[in-house]
Design a protein around this nucleic acid. Structure first.
Ligand SMILES: [Mn+2]
Ligand SMILES: [Mn+2]
Ligand SMILES: [Mn+2]
Ligand SMILES: [Mn+2]
Lengths: 218, 218
DNA sequence: TTAAAAATTTAGATTAATCTAAATTTTTAA
DNA sequence: TTAAAAATTTAGATTAATCTAAATTTTTAA
């Protein structure tokens, strides 16, 4: 199996890449793993030796098929544990990320499959992110950033692009949680702030930065 | 906090020591941690620097008060996770040890306290071992090895000294699980094998080796 | 009481993961 | 088209955990 550290790199590359498995740069990996570029280069050589990534010196990396499989499995574990923490243990959605960051490395297929069943095979985690099934397949709902909506458009909040406690608590305070229906009432020209109506009654104003990190289904 | 490896050493020393916190030898630690004596010596120096153990060169070690606290906390986590695996996820008692060996290192006090509540604050794990509460206190029931019983004595199976799947499956097959009431009917002089009656009806013969690893309350 | 055996520690190496500083390659922009 | 800037890799070190072989200390048993 792969080490803790290797798994974190695989997951980082997976998240930095997109559905098209685009090339990821050394520096971007260093940033999300909180390491230096030189350390990343060493690890990339190792992951390439293990055939988990396609790596050409100075040209960046993509995950190999094996690498994608491994990464998706870690994501599956991360998200199932998050559901467990919120649904069964009563944690808030802004409290679970760091704990899941550790739990995702527990190594037992039967554990995670049983957990999946125990939770009722949930389709999404507490942040709205889809959970891959045991074969690694999952549907990605078509989500749009609130910052990309036009005046008058309506959508249902179904995901977030930012998982920090600070951001999630802010949403909570505004009442902009998953499932909330919103309508854009105004886009402020001065700084791009967005005014919206939540659940038909609550008027809210959010900065462009916040709007970029809220995802809706139209 | 302490590393994975440090935690495993602390737990090893704790289990090798007894309620009186007797001195533990380098070689015995090497045996249970699957390392060599030289590696243990290195680690003992490190744990002594951290004030987790009392270590005198060539004289063995005991846990310090801080060390005991840390060890008991790991044991608490190990046992609570075992209960979770058996009670909530439907694992058998012989399948949970290795997974709990990983889960015990997850680092979050609120996680483990919530898990404790979720499980209904169980007093014992699936092998009958007592679970320390969040302050680290726990009652050790007075248990006796079946191999120490005399002919005619009666007891209730309440624990095991051996956690391997091989042994636990054997007990399961014989119907000698936790809560079973047994009476010693004969002790074979030739090899010390023990014949007993389980639940008043089932006649069973077990080797002395097996008998040493089954614990009863009188 | 003391020599041999057993237990333990030390010396010197190795592997994984990381770092800083220097070298190299690629990209950018005049 | 090419020099400067940015990105990346290499070189050389460090820390944690481990090992084998040799040295030292303690224990055992004549
Ligand atoms: Mn992680
Ligand atoms: Mn999530
Ligand atoms: Mn462990
Ligand atoms: Mn147990």
């Amino acid at each position: 199996m792969h080490s803790f550290t290797e798994e974190n790199y695989l997951k980082a590359i997976y998240h930095l890449s997109d559905a098209n498995n685009t090339v990821v740069s050394t520096n971007s990996i260093a940033e999300v793993t909180n390491t230096k570029a030189a350390s990343v280069t060493d690890m990339l050589k190792k992951l390439a030796d293990k055939k988990l990534i396609n790596y050409i010196k100075y040209q960046g990396v993509t995950l190999s098929n094996t690498g994608i499989q491994a990464a998706v499995n870690i994501v599956r574990k991360h998200r199932l544990w998050e559901v467990f923490l919120v649904e069964k243990l009563g944690f808030k959605w802004d409290e679970v990320h760091d704990i899941a960051e550790e739990l995702e490395h527990i190594n037992s297929a039967s554990l995670i499959d049983r957990l999946d069943d125990f939770l009722g095979n949930p389709a999404a985690d507490p942040h709205g992110d889809p959970i891959p099934d045991r074969t690694g397949t999952f549907v990605h709902k078509k989500l749009v950033k609130v910052s990309d909506l036009k005046e008058g458009q309506t959508g249902t909040i179904s995901g977030v692009n930012e998982h920090s406690s600070l951001f999630l608590k802010h949403l909570e305070k505004l009442g902009l949680t998953l499932g909330t229906k919103i309508t854009i009432s105004d886009i402020i020209e001065f700084d791009g702030s967005i005014m919206l109506i939540a659940d038909k009654t609550k008027e809210r104003t959010i900065s462009r930065e916040v709007a970029k990190n809220i995802l809706v289904i139209l």
